[in-house]
Design a protein around this nucleic acid. Structure first.
Lengths: 247, 247
DNA sequence: TGAAAAGTTTTGTATAGACATAAGAGGGCC
DNA sequence: GGCCCTCTTATGTCTATACAAAACTTTTCA
């Protein structure tokens, strides 16, 4: 019951409770002790109990209702923390030498399809980049990226032969929102040739759209050969670190 | 600066600060005001300021050091909350009629490959299920599931003709950990026939392994026709609700 | 000069009390 | 029975205070 790992009292109360919930000892719907009962049990003040319970309510593990009490929440949380890869870091983390190659770079007005991908209304100057990431010399991912030069004019002067656009953007442009779309696709022949795979082989496609406030910063499509790549998300419900890993 | 949406003071302080960080006004490394400065600015007690800042530190957006102060943390968080679908809910949420069909059900000793998928050491009795989920009559997902009967003996008596195994497990068996693997694959011919797609069409494959403590509960592989299905994760860094959606 | 000691500042945790708010429980009235 | 009002109870938020721990700064003393 008393967990010696957690030094402070409110953390110990919190982990005692979440442990009982997650072990199934307290099933969904079960009423957990009132604050004053926990005060008595742990011999502490109500603020301390409240500090233990409030984050459990915020994370959705319990539901609190005035007068009624606190209850283990019914619908089990069903979301997962997915670690989205920064490709150079990802490849080197696997212990493979990382290679990067800028294949094309153009500044131009966004085409119709690109306007849609960037979600813009009117034509705008974009920087269009296509890069190939390699692991141990083999193609690892094809990156097709549009950068909105109206929002990030500095990008026009960066030497993307040397630095990958994802890394540069991540460290130079703050963002407030991102949307990821993960899908499977049969890619066009040109793409399959670049990736060195068969024409009909399935690929994992990760698209990311990034905003800063209302400005669209960038849209990127990463195409991974399906055979060689998985995304792995591990959910350990405690709001601790997220130990995501990849094959 | 002052956000009228957030009724309570500590939430307003919290969102004011995270807003300035996420907009880039306070870049990584920037020292945010001391607690006593925020007390003066908002005219409140230190406990209230602390209640605003503590979750920001816990979520990793800021780093707090005694004597030195609190700072915007350097490495930008790069993970994403992905909403993993409960298929019946998912289909009906799209406004399509949901159909479910149990295709096969067997209790048997786990085969070699299945032992590996369940991560077991020795042979064990499993319940093997194959179900097809339909949306508007069309195949939506193929579910291939193994349930470890040593861990969940009750599953042997459930009528999985009527209730989908995912829904039953979710509401009857608590779990403590889950690992998800997302990949793209060209599926075997038998699967493509079941899903009513071309033999070489790419599919999105979602595998989930669930634990309760050290016991493996279930392993499931969901295969979605790639053309018809995306996973979408929207990252809005506020630790509020996760507004995930799907195409 | 240089290392140890003392002081200062900031965060971390906890207490006790106060008032507000929501909502279930029960009683009385039509 | 059904409806409204009041009473009660549990949570929600906040204050003021206290002491502890960490870490940077200054002073002291060998």
């Amino acid at each position: 019951m008393t967990d010696l790992k957690d030094a402070t009292l409110h953390k110990r109360i919190r982990s005692d409770i979440s442990e009982r919930i997650l072990s199934g000892a307290w099933p969904p719907g079960h009423r957990i002790p009132y604050e004053h009962e926990l005060m008595a049990e742990y011999g502490c003040s109500r603020m301390t109990v409240n500090k233990a319970l409030a984050p459990l309510a915020e994370s959705g593990l319990i539901i609190r209702r005035r007068k009624a009490g606190s209850f283990v929440s019914r619908p089990r949380i069903h979301s997962v923390v997915l670690d989205i890869p920064d490709i150079p870091a990802e490849v080197t983390a696997r212990g493979e030498p990382y290679g990067y190659e800028l294949q094309s770079r153009k500044v131009r007005l966004a085409g119709r399809r690109e306007i849609e991908e960037l979600g813009l209304d009117l034509p705008v100057e974009v920087l269009a980049l296509r890069c190939l990431h390699r692991a141990s010399g083999r193609p690892f991912a094809l990156e097709e990226r549009l950068i909105n030069l109206a929002a990030v004019p500095e990008a026009a002067d960066v030497d993307f032969m040397r630095v990958a656009p994802g890394s540069w953007l991540l460290s130079h442009v703050p963002w407030t929102e991102a949307e990821h779309r993960i899908s499977a696709a049969n890619v066009p022949r040109a793409t399959s040739i670049l990736l060195g795979i068969e024409a009909q082989a399935a690929c994992l496609v990760l698209e990311r759209q990034t905003w800063r406030g209302d400005d669209r910063i960038t849209h990127v499509r990463l195409t991974f050969p399906g055979e060689a790549y998985d995304l792995v998300a591990r959910f350990a419900p405690q709001p601790a670190a997220n130990p995501a890993a990849r094959r």
